[in-house]
């Protein structure tokens, strides 16, 4: 379980309050208008923004002061998920060892994961030689290899076309289920949430509204969601 305990974030004049619990083992969508603070909240959970007040806990352990790389989570950004000068295999291998000194066993693991996301045999290529969808797959492969219980996604597929995006969401859903990953996914598109999210939380007016089961939420939207959906 990911707990945001009376979390208060400040970024310049912008403030965001979050007090919620996110269930482990499913996909939670985080929705809100652009500028509502979705990415800011994700940055705080991932350790890039120190909260003014409050705690972030995972399974009861306070991680508020941990550096980003030591948190029990992986994160996929909107872009710049791969180092452009490192091969795909190296980019993915970073998920196992940040100094890339992999032994034979680890290399086998890495290649297995690459095959899993449909990138078998492409390890030697540079990111620029991959399509957008393949780049997303490589980043996802690395997150899988890190084996952290939580996966945060900051609209990572937003640059993809509709068909590819659908494909990536499906891949995400399947792998999350198979690996027992808990996913928190930022999106501004209600269709994404409806497609794969078990729960959906809304950020509006500087406040995080705790997650609710997606289907009933959209069937009978509360006022702030109705305002967002228009």
């Amino acid at each position: 379980m990911l707990e945001l305990d009376h979390l208060r974030l400040m970024l310049g004049a912008f403030t965001l309050e979050a007090d919620a619990r996110l269930e482990a083992g499913g996909i939670t969508a985080l929705m809100g208008a652009s500028g509502s603070g979705k990415s800011t909240l994700l940055a705080a959970i991932a350790g890039f923004l120190a909260p003014e007040d409050g705690q972030v806990r995972v399974d009861g352990a306070d991680i508020t002061a941990l550096p980003p790389g030591d948190r029990p989570l992986s994160i996929l950004f909107q872009d710049q998920n791969l180092f452009p000068h490192l091969s795909v295999a190296k980019n993915v291998g970073l998920g196992l060892r940040s100094d890339l000194r992999l032994d034979a066993e680890q290399k086998k693991d890495r290649d297995a994961v690459l095959a899993r996301v449909g990138l078998a045999g492409m390890g030697d290529r540079l990111p620029r030689d991959l399509s957008g969808g393949q780049q997303s797959r490589a980043a996802l492969a690395r997150a899988l290899l890190r084996r952290r219980p939580w996966l945060l996604l900051d609209e990572p597929f937003s640059a993809l076309g509709p068909a590819l995006r659908q494909e990536m969401l499906t891949l995400l859903r399947e792998t999350a289920q198979a690996e027992g990953l808990s996913v928190l996914m930022v999106t501004h598109d209600p269709a994404d949430a409806r497609a794969i999210a078990d729960h959906t939380a809304l950020i509006a007016g500087g406040v995080l509204h705790p997650p609710k089961p997606t289907a009933p939420l959209f069937a009978d939207p509360p006022p702030e969601l109705r305002a967002y959906l228009g």
């Binding site: 991932a46 350790g47 890039f48 550096p67 980003p68 790389g69 030591d70 992986s74 994160i75 950004f77 710049q80 998920n81 180092f83 000068h85 490192l86 190296k90 970073l94 998920g95 940040s98 100094d99 890339l100 690395r142 890190r146």
Partner: peptide, 25 residues
């Protein structure tokens, strides 16, 4: 700006960061 967060999220620091990220870039 471009790769700071990515490096941090992967726990890349010190010599590994210098060798794998800073020097090549």
């Amino acid at each position: 700006r471009d790769y700071g967060r990515l490096s941090a999220s992967l726990g890349l620091s010190g010599w590994s960061w210098l060798r794998l990220v800073a020097l090549p870039r």
